[in-house]
Design a protein around this nucleic acid. Structure first.
Lengths: 256, 256
DNA sequence: CCAAAAGTGTTTAAAATACACCCATGC
DNA sequence: GCATGGGTGTATTTTAAACACTTTTGG
């Protein structure tokens, strides 16, 4: 299907495929070089950045829609995602941007389900930066990572959604395990600590952190240390997947 | 507007007024006789109980829709409500029930936005049982309170939504103040403790509870004690509205 | 004056925090 | 051999939980 056809099809017949007035936006966090990053799309012509989002197929669970969107933008599968809030301000739509977009795409459409207001459900995910191949969608001309401290101007209320996702991530750090999919298969204690420090944006005590994270039981120490470091070699750890999954559902309760 | 007209109008033209594929369901908790109650509607003909729900006007914030629904069922205004989860299973609709309902109402409709699947956002509220005048909606023939431990069979996934609301309420008890709108203007320490015990469904130590609840600063002691009790008279307290509202937003963090 | 229930502590246990010392490695 | 950063253990503070004694009131 060529570009124009795909666009006009989406605007004219998307409502036959998707639920109306409701969308999903994903806040995809990544971790790299000890920095927390977010994956954003650059909306064509609008000249603004946007969260990767999409719509819900008529016979699809919303959680599946979020995972599908994640997969489309990153190629990643089997990632834990979580809805964190619904955004429903009546002014959260912008017909002008759509018309500008269509005009530039050379498509003339006067009526569309896409011009209506959308309520959006925010989903957040934590992924392994290095395994991601960012892919833009048809509405975008770029898809790239941004440092959490250096976010560009964003569409509509997307900045607000992002802030809420970050707050939510920080708050949940005490109750949900974090790191699987985000750290390499085997990692050292300082590495996982850096991850926590980056998300929380504060320093943690090395010794107390180790005691607590080991206390949750989600880590298994390997019989192997890191090589080639100019100091005492740290142990490698990996996640105990059984306990990790269990903690994801039931929570684990510790304070940092 | 007569009954038939109202029904057929809703089924045939509701989509001109409301957003499609999305609804709001309210879990309205009340407190009475030291029991936690929930307000339910009895769906005509379906012979099942349902959560009070509704739809979102095209130009209305979803939070406003939830408050409007609460007001319609209870007459109450100015109640703190909170979204807690979105329910989006593709099978959460039941065309047959609608057709049964319409048949019994003597209305013939073959196509309607109401026959489609709905994603619903759960909102919870805590209200003063004694100030509520339960009012059924056009789809229901009863509206009444049920003890949380004695819930009847419910439509679709409504029981699941209710359970999630209760879990959420219990979990939030440590971070959000509870009681305004729920207790009389002035109340005693044992009364507010009973409220917490009822929601959490467990006994709390009288002395530790008092220390913690006073520690949050949301209560002000009045210069007045309860009269006519055959033992030492407890003080009356009331909420410090300024601090209460502040704690609603920012959380307060104490453990019970 | 006694039972019932509230007010006001204190004692004890647990958990979070801060901190100190030793160990291994590369330069 | 020393600077760097990791491993382990302990003292201190803070917070939560358990518990005891006194006070007030109606009958």
């Amino acid at each position: 299907m060529n570009f124009d056809k795909e666009i006009s099809d989406h605007y004219l017949r998307g409502h036959e495929k998707y639920l109306r007035n409701i969308s999903v936006d994903c806040i995809i966090f990544g971790f790299h070089d000890n920095e927390l990053k977010v994956l954003l799309l650059h909306a064509r012509y609008a000249m603004l950045w946007a969260l990767p989002g999409g719509f819900i197929n008529k016979a699809e669970h919303m959680d599946e829609a979020a995972k599908r969107i994640l997969k489309e933008r990153t190629g990643l599968d089997e990632i834990y995602m979580q809805q964190f809030h619904v955004f429903s301000a009546p002014e959260r739509f912008n017909k002008k941007i759509h018309q500008q977009f269509l005009k530039n795409a050379g498509v003339i459409i006067s009526e569309s389900w896409m011009f209506e207001r959308f309520i959006t459900v925010g989903y957040s995910a934590l992924v392994d930066f290095s395994r991601v191949q960012p892919v833009a969608d048809v509405f975008s001309n770029a898809c790239q990572w941004f440092n959490i401290h250096d976010i560009p101007e964003m569409m509509l209320d997307h900045r607000n959604i992002l802030n809420k996702a970050l707050e939510n991530l920080q708050a949940q750090l005490n109750y949900h395990p974090v790191g699987y999919n985000l750290l390499p298969e085997k990692f050292t204690m300082p590495e996982i600590q850096k991850l926590y420090e980056t998300i929380l944006d504060k320093k943690l005590d090395r010794r107390n952190f180790q005691r607590k994270i080991l206390g949750t039981g989600i880590l298994k120490r390997l019989n192997e240390t890191k090589k080639g470091v100019a100091h005492k070699a740290p142990w490698y750890y990996k996640f105990d997947l059984r306990k990790y999954q269990k903690a994801l559902k039931g929570g684990m309760g510790f304070e940092l």
